[in-house]
């Protein structure tokens, strides 16, 4: 399972705001191979969110082309895009975006149901995936009964439940403290080791260091694109944090 997963050719997206045209993204030529871990960085208004919406099939480009797994999907209809999101893409959002008053299990099962599978199959698959993120004992809890880190893990389980080829995370640690954020990054690194392509949108350089490659956006264009030299390993950092906490407690 190697090769190019994502390829964009002259990708552009204009928004019409009344009389003026906002060129949110222009001439983006980018390739992302299978198994990569890419951090997309840039200040707000740089086009990184627009880029993520386009490669996540939430939006259609106004210029250029977008190939996912070699297939041109720039001009597909709403239903076809929905099916691609359902089967190939898993989203993780900054605010978790879990359905309130709905159990973790039902939240995670939702994409399976939209894939046309039965409720029983959905619950079975959801339980397996919750187990994979270490939350099988919280399956019946509602989001309000879970901590922020646990909620984000439920959201990641939901992103994983249909075995996607691509995980798209938009500021996944933005609403979490440093330690919990590191736990989430450790989870992403683990998933990446298992072969899933991960794209994280962030403005935090400390988070971006966990990726293998950082793509910088500014004013709708790609500004920089380089491999990470000193890649951080979230598990090591967590261990260091624990050691420091233990020493503090000992003193």
């Amino acid at each position: 399972m190697t090769g190019v997963l994502i390829e964009t050719q002259g990708l552009g997206r204009d928004y019409q705001l009344g009389e003026t045209t906002v060129r949110a993204l222009r001439d983006v030529d980018l390739k992302i191979a299978r198994g990569e871990f890419v951090a997309v960085m840039g200040p707000s208004g740089s086009g990184k969110s627009t880029f993520m919406n386009l490669i996540g099939c939430l939006d259609r480009p106004t210029a250029g082309r977008y190939f996912l797994e070699g297939a041109d999907i720039s001009q597909l209809g709403r239903d076809a895009l929905a099916n691609i999101r359902n089967e190939k893409v898993g989203f993780v959002f900054q605010t978790f975006s879990l359905l309130p008053r709905t159990s973790a299990l039902d939240n995670v099962a939702m994409p399976v149901l939209y894939g046309g599978k039965s409720g029983r199959e959905g619950r079975k698959k959801a339980l397996e995936t919750l187990e994979a993120v270490g939350l099988s004992d919280r399956a019946s809890h509602h989001p309000a009964q879970l901590s922020g880190g646990q909620q984000q893990r439920v959201a990641i389980a939901r992103a994983l439940v249909n075995d996607p080829v691509l995980i798209l995370a938009d500021e996944p640690t933005g609403a979490l403290d440093t330690r919990t954020g590191l736990e989430i990054m450790a989870l992403f690194q683990e998933l990446n080791r298992q072969g899933i392509t991960v794209v994280v949108v962030t403005h935090d350089p400390d988070i971006a260091r966990h990726a293998k490659r950082i793509v910088g956006f500014r004013d709708g264009r790609v500004l920089s694109d380089e491999a990470v030299a000193n890649r951080a390993d979230a598990r090591t950092e967590l261990a260091a944090l624990a050691d420091a906490a233990a020493r503090e407690a000992a003193q």
């Binding site: 996540g56 939430l58 709403r78 239903d79 929905a82 099916n83 999101r85 359902n86 089967e87 989203f91 975006s97 359905l99 939702m110 994409p111 939209y114 894939g115 939901r158 249909n162």
Partner: peptide, 10 residues
């Protein structure tokens, strides 16, 4: 959110 995880308009 439902649309993001694959709900079609219908």
């Amino acid at each position: 959110l439902r649309m993001a995880v694959g709900a079609r308009p219908r």
